[in-house]
Computed example of a mutant assay.
Amino acid sequence: MGPIPYGKQNITAEDIQAVVETLQSDFLTQGPKVEEFETKFAQYIGCDYALAVTNGTAALHLCAMVLGVNEQSNVITSPITFAASANCLRYCGGTVWFADIDPTTGLLDIAHVRILLESKPKDFFTGIIPVDFAGLAVNLEAFRQLADEYNLWLLEDACHAPGGSFTDSSGTQQNCGNSQFADLAIFSFHPVKHIATGEGGMITTNNRDFYEKLLRLRTHGITKNPELLQHNPGGWYYEMQDLGYNYRIPDILTALGISQLNRADANLKIRRQIAARYNEAFQSVKSISILNPTAYYPELKESGHAYHLYIIQVPDRKGLYDYLRQHQIFAQVHYIPVHTMPYYQQLGWKYGDFPRAEKFYEHCLSLPMFPTLTNQEQQYVIDKVLEFVNF
């Protein structure tokens, strides 16, 4: 059996044909495929506006700009996430504050966020960036209520969760990124994600003013929209109205994204089936802890988990990691707590600040999880995990 990675893209003949057709078209970039991808993604998520950009980090950066993050901004996020969730604030001069996680889910713990909010003057904080970690949706209704109490904005990092959802207090299914509760949300299309474009990201929102500004910021802060121009001497004319960036995504990549989006639901169904097989294999093994969505959503049998990652916790994570690699299973660790990175330690954070996040990191391991993982490959992974923990 060949090497088994923790995540892997699935490129089909239809994907290749979609890219070839775009290569043979009149537009490699700034063409119709970008808008088509945005429209279809907005429909899939259930939001009003979607804006495609170069990657998820660029999406976070532009959202921070639109939300007005600056040197006076203090924003809360999770330490168990990829560094970009925090870095986007630093790009704009803002100050990052972390709150600890719920160890049963890996999600930002709203109770700890409230404790942090209460520790400062009421107008000290400006926003919260909850992360749909591993594909499990944050209860954004609860976070919205807390944010409104303190007059904060909400930016949902849904990079792990296209197709994920939670059920709100009225019994309505709320899709990750639909912006019913968050002001903005972002997604990533890195190859190990649900929808792969090579590199790419998306911002979703229901706020038209945000959307119009994002359009400019994505392209150097430039607009040619006649309704927005201060002067209009002719059809050639454009204005740079903000200091923006070149965060445009090319048509080649969005053509791939459209093709991948066509089978997003089918792939999500497979991810959930893979997770169910892992759950069945590990749920009665005392030395293996699996993340428990029902602890977060006790009223639900189906949590709407998107399963970007399947994470277990074991006493000897390093031993299991090495053992699996010896057998060509390339499991991964998600994530090294952001506050322990040298850059953030220079800003004053240190080991011991968030015991739950640090303990989670010491024991967590992401097992192979991708739609083309075969039953035989998955059983091999399960067998090797059980071999190690039962030594």
Rank of each mutant, 00 (worst) to 15 (best):
A137E: 02
T223N: 03
L152N: 04
T204H: 06
Y237P: 00
A185E: 08
I249D: 06
V131W: 01
D183C: 11
Q174V: 15
Y150H: 06
G201H: 04
F166N: 01
E212H: 13
I129K: 10
N246V: 11
A142G: 07
L146M: 10
P191Y: 03
H160I: 05
K213R: 15
N207Q: 11
N178F: 10
E239T: 01
N175R: 14
F143P: 02
W153K: 10
A182Q: 07
A255G: 03
G127Y: 10
N207D: 15
W236K: 12
R216V: 09
H220F: 14
P233L: 00
I222E: 07
P233R: 04
L136H: 00
T223F: 05
D132L: 09
Q241R: 14
N139D: 12
R216S: 13
T223E: 03
H220V: 12
R208S: 15
F181P: 08
I222L: 03
F187L: 08
T204G: 05
T219L: 11
K193P: 07
R144E: 11
L214M: 14
I222N: 04
G198I: 01
R208E: 15
P250G: 13
K224V: 10
L136N: 02
I186G: 11
L155W: 12
D183P: 08
A185R: 08
D242T: 09
D251E: 08
E212R: 15
G200T: 00
N175Y: 12
P162K: 01
C176L: 08
P162R: 00
I129A: 11
N139R: 09
Y247W: 10
P130C: 05
A142T: 11
F125Y: 14
P130I: 03
L215R: 13
M202E: 05
I195R: 00
N206R: 09
L136C: 00
A137M: 02
I222M: 08
A182C: 10
W153R: 08
I186M: 14
G244Y: 06
Q173H: 13
F187A: 07
F166E: 01
M240Q: 14
